[in-house]
Computed example of a mutant assay.
Amino acid sequence: MHLARGSSDDPHVWLWVLGALALYALISYALAYRARARRGSSHPARDAVHDLKDREDPQPPEDRFVSRLIMFSGAGLTGLVAYLTSGAVRVLTVGLTALVAVTVWAYFDHRTQTRAAARR
């Protein structure tokens, strides 16, 4: 009899997945907080939490699609790097890949937000 198992023999895979989700939530909150603080909000922490669930200024559909494509591509690339490496190399390469992916994603969102604000 065979027992059903996950696709990986590494017992720490769920920790990596939960860590990636926590990192995504933290980065999303930090970007929302930064935007609220720059706009001069009196309570940027509380407003940033509200921005996570409903956005005041939705992106145009094409910018939102590209932003999500960058986000998911970065997550996929980070997951692929984690799958292909092990040990201390995994921690270093996953950290660097995630940092580059998040930087590209944040830069794109910043650039499109600046252009959208200039059009108004």
Rank of each mutant, 00 (worst) to 15 (best):
P61S: 12
A30D: 04
D109H: 12
T85A: 09
S86D: 11
Y83G: 10
M71N: 12
A45F: 12
S73G: 11
L15Y: 10
L23T: 06
T103S: 12
A106R: 07
T85G: 06
L96Q: 08
L99G: 13
G6Y: 10
D57P: 02
M1W: 15
I27L: 00
D54H: 03
S73I: 03
H2G: 09
P11E: 13
G79M: 06
V94Q: 11
I70V: 11
R119F: 07
A116H: 13
G19D: 08
R120N: 04
A30W: 14
R64A: 12
V102Q: 13
A101D: 00
R68W: 14
H12N: 13
V104I: 14
A101E: 02
H110K: 02
R36H: 13
Y24R: 05
E56F: 09
T97H: 07
A20V: 10
H43F: 06
L23R: 00
R120H: 08
R34W: 06
S67I: 04
L31N: 14
S7T: 15
D63N: 15
D47R: 14
A106Y: 03
T114D: 10
L21I: 12
R5H: 15
P58W: 02
A25V: 02
Y83H: 14
V94P: 10
T85I: 11
S67M: 04
A75M: 12
W16K: 06
S73Y: 01
S7K: 11
V91N: 07
P44C: 11
T112V: 15
V89E: 11
W105V: 03
A37S: 14
R5Q: 13
R120W: 05
Y29D: 01
